[in-house]
Write a protein that binds this DNA or RNA. Structure first.
Lengths: 226, 226
DNA sequence: CACATTACTGACTTGACAGTTATTAACTGA
DNA sequence: TCAGTTAATAACTGTCAAGTCAGTAATGTG
C-alpha cells in the first residue's frame, strides 16, 4: 500500500532496481527541471529539493553534478543561451539578399525563437537575476549581448553604406532592436494575465517590425514604393 | 571606548536621549532605506535587519510600521511609482502644440525622470520581482502600465487622425515607446559596467527618439523636408 | 559468484533570517 | 513631578532550506 512506483514497472518485484545509474543523463535532466522551476518561481524561491524531485533524483545527486545552487543557475544560462545564439549565427551566415530582407529575417528568427516557452522564460529569468550574479552578467554580456549586437550592427552598417537605411548609429539601433523584441516576447508570455489589452503574437511582431523598419529605411527607398 | 554615538551629540551625557520618537518620519525613512537596498541587492537577498540599520532603527520598529517584508516592498512601489506618474500626467495636461512635439516632450520627460538614480533603480527592481508578486503585478498594471500606455496612445491617436503620424496601432506603439525608453534607461544605469560599448545618455535618447519618430511620421511630412 | 567501484540516497547539521515579545525609555499633560 | 501612553528596542523563537555525509544499492569485472 505504501509502496508507490512512479511508472509502468510496478509489480515486477524481482528484477526491478529501485533506481538506475545514468550519470550521462542526469546533468541534462537536472538542468531542464531547474530551468522550468526557476523561471516559474524565481531563483530565490525555488528549493533545490523541488528541482531534485522534478528531475527524478534526490537532493544529494544534484550536488554530485553541481557545486551549489548558484553554479546550477550559471550552468543553465551557459548551456541554453549560447545554444540559441549559435543557431541564429548560422542562419545569418547563409543568407543573401538585401539588408532589409536580412534584417527582417533575423528579427523574425529572434521572435519565433522566443515563442518557445522555455526560451522566453530563460530570457526573463536571466534579466531578472542579472544584478544578483555579477560573474554571470559579465559572461552574459561577453558571450551573448555583445555578439548579438555586433551581428545586427553589421547588417545595419551594410544597409547604411548601400543607402537602404538612414545613417543611424548601428550599435545603438542594433541593441534597441534586440531589446525591443525580447522585451515584447516576454511580455506576451508572462504579463498577458495582468493586462486587459491583448495583442496576438503576429500583431505585435508586425507592428514592432514595421515601426522599426520604417524608422530605418531612407526616404529614397520608401518613395520608390509609393 | 565601547560607547559609540552616531552623531554630534556624543558627550552630552545628561540630557541626551538614547533615541527619539519620530513616528511621522519613520515610514519614509524606512521606505527610502529599503528602496536603496532592495534595488542594489534584490529583494530576496536583502535582510530586514540591514534595512533597519540603514534607516537608523531596530528591526522591531520596521514591523511597527509594515506588516511584513512583502508589505514593505509593495509600499515602496505604491509610493514612488504612482508619485512619478502623477507628475507626468500633469505636464501632459498642460501641453499644447503638434502631436509630434507633445510626444517628443513626453519621451523627454520619461527619459529625464529616469536619469534619477532612484527611479531607474525602482523601475528595474519592479520588473525583476513582478513575477514573484502577483498582487503587486496586478496593481502595477492597473495603476501604472495601463494609464501610461493610454496617455501615450491618446497622443498617437490624435497624431494619426490629423495625418502627422502613420496609421499604426496606437496602443501597441505606445507601449513600445514606453518600454524601450525604460529599458534603455535601466541599461544605462546598471549594465554599463558589463558593456564595453558606452553611449552617453544624450546619444541614446537622440538615437532612440529619432528612430521611433521617423518610424511614426508619415511619408508626406518627411517628404516636405527633402 | 565475489568483490571493487561508484551513482545515488535521505537523514542530518547548520546557519540564516522573518517575525514576535517582554521590556524599557521617551514623551505628554494634568 | 509623576502617572499614563506609546515609540522603540534587543534578545528570542521557529522555520526553512542549503549543503554534508555515512551508508546503500546498482553495476562492472575477474
Amino acid at each position: 500500500m505504501d509502496k508507490l512506483s512512479t511508472e509502468l514497472d510496478h509489480n515486477a518485484d524481482d528484477t526491478a532496481p529501485r533506481w538506475q545509474r545514468r550519470p550521462e543523463d542526469r546533468p541534462t535532466e537536472i538542468l531542464d527541471a531547474a530551468l522550468l522551476l526557476f523561471s516559474e518561481q524565481g531563483f530565490a524561491r525555488t528549493k533545490l529539493e523541488e528541482v531534485a524531485k522534478k528531475a527524478g533524483v534526490s537532493k544529494g545527486t544534484v550536488y554530485l553534478y553541481f557545486e551549489s545552487k548558484d553554479a546550477l543557475f550559471q550552468a543553465i544560462v551557459r548551456k541554453y543561451v549560447t545554444e540559441a545564439l549559435l543557431q541564429l549565427r548560422e542562419i545569418v551566415r547563409q543568407h543573401t539578399g538585401t539588408s532589409e530582407s536580412l534584417l527582417r529575417h533575423v528579427m523574425e528568427l529572434i521572435w519565433t525563437s522566443m515563442r518557445n516557452e522555455g526560451k522566453a522564460r530563460l530570457s526573463r529569468l536571466v534579466h531578472s537575476e542579472l544584478a544578483n550574479f555579477p560573474d554571470l552578467a559579465r559572461f552574459y554580456f561577453a558571450e551573448v549581448v555583445i555578439p548579438s549586437r555586433e551581428m545586427v550592427s553589421e547588417i545595419l552598417t551594410r544597409g547604411i553604406q548601400n543607402g537602404e537605411f538612414a545613417p543611424v548609429n548601428p550599435d545603438l539601433v542594433g541593441r534597441t532592436i534586440c531589446v525591443t523584441l525580447l522585451q515584447w516576447a516576454s511580455n506576451q508570455r508572462y504579463l498577458k494575465q495582468f493586462d486587459s489589452m491583448h495583442f496576438s503574437d503576429d500583431e505585435v511582431f508586425a507592428g514592432v517590425s514595421d515601426l522599426l523598419l520604417r524608422g530605418l529605411k531612407t526616404g529614397a527607398v520608401r518613395a520608390q514604393r509609393d
